[in-house]
Design a protein around this nucleic acid. Structure first.
Lengths: 134, 134
DNA sequence: CCTCAATTGAGAAACGAGTATCATTAGTAT
DNA sequence: ATACTAATGATACTCGTTTCTCAATTGAGG
């Protein structure tokens, strides 16, 4: 009854699966619209909410009003770093975090989790030397 | 002519100086109101904007609709990590980042900067075992 | 002290992410 | 194939953050 296999859901999952890193809801809408042309933003949010509750996706908060989503089953540890290109804005997965993070918490503080974001330029933007390549 | 030394500006700077980490605009308003009782939120935003342009403060983006500000001259490297308490929500400075971050960028990518945020419980919340100590 | 422009405070307005509404569409079980 | 109900799409709405407006205030220099 719940979680029917709709073409919209498939399109959203495929968009996330084919991405090099976490996507914004509006990016998901753009990418998934190729497979599901009638897709609307409300459905993107609804599916993401369901997938979050089911544990199929997780959120990556990269800044003010910049929450992105990625599939949890991507072969990376739960809270791996991300690289954000300052030129095109795309986010890319980075496989693992450096050692020593556990030692950084101040004395008496309990570390539960961490988020590491790298900023710079992705290889495509560097190659193109283009102020708007992706 | 520009950047007059007003009591409001002084109160805002003092609030930032006495904080253990970056503050939200509304937190700055609360803290600085002790020194400048008539202070309004618009003035907080205006002063932060001026201080940003002057390079006196920098932003720390900790998530969706959670931008905090801290003085740049605090004895820490420019982009040191922060510890965010999941219980009280306060943010604390962490002196330095672990080694090896420069090696994490994917091949062909140019690393310019990074942001590392630790999540857990601050010592006050742990001591109090209180669901809302700060 | 006086002048003048920068600054302020209160509230309105803009803004953007996310949610709710509701008639319509379309999976799924039988 | 049919019926039932979850899911969808368009859009209005919510809600917190940030900016704008404008009259009143207040530093700073003369």
């Amino acid at each position: 009854m719940s979680n029917r296999l709709t073409s919209q859901r498939t399109a959203i999952v495929e968009a996330l699966r084919n991405a090099p890193g976490p996507l914004r809801p509006c990016e998901i809408l753009d990418l998934a619209s190729a497979r599901a042309p009638t897709l609307g933003i409300a459905t993107v949010y609804r599916q993401l909410k369901r997938m979050l509750e089911a544990g199929n996706v997780c959120t990556v908060e990269l800044g003010r009003q910049d929450v992105r989503y990625e599939l949890t089953d991507r072969g990376h540890p739960a809270h791996h770093p991300h690289f954000v290109c300052r030129n095109c804005g795309d986010a890319f997965d980075v496989p693992r975090s450096p050692d020593g993070i556990a030692d950084l918490a101040p004395p008496g503080f309990a570390l539960e989790d961490h988020e590491l974001t790298l900023y710079g330029r992705c290889s495509d933007c560097i190659k193109a030397n283009d102020p708007d390549a992706g």
